[in-house]
């Protein structure tokens, strides 16, 4: 069973720098990612936008593994600011999960 957190979904909507609405799940980003993790980055954004907190928490290592190399962003046909989104997720986790400011 997947638990939905409306709070997380609301926070992602308001999070500064996070915007993945234009993503139409073409998979270019996942295919180009040098790390080769299937979760990065589109499925991750999808989980965060839907408020699937358990899945986001389970993928913390992948979120902090992103190289921020922008290979995906430079080739995204929808112009999603992928690295800003990753930074936003990291910032959220730092505050909400790690208690870091």
């Amino acid at each position: 069973m997947t638990r939905v957190s409306p709070e997380l979904a609301a926070r992602m909507k308001k999070a500064e720098g996070f915007d993945a609405n234009a993503c139409f799940h073409c998979g270019t980003c996942t295919a180009l990612c040098p790390l080769g993790y299937k979760i990065l980055p589109r499925k991750l954004f999808h989980d965060a936008m839907l408020g699937l907190e358990d899945r986001v928490r389970a993928n913390i290592p992948q979120i902090f593994s992103c190289l921020l190399c922008r290979m995906c962003e430079a080739n995204c046909p929808s112009g999603v600011h992928i690295t800003d989104n990753i930074r936003s997720l990291r910032s959220l986790i730092n505050r909400q999960v790690f208690g870091l400011k």
Binding site: R87, S88, I93, N94, L100, K101
Partner: peptide
Amino acid sequence: LYDDGLDEA
């Protein structure tokens, strides 16, 4: 700090 999303610091 910036890359790791430690925005306040």
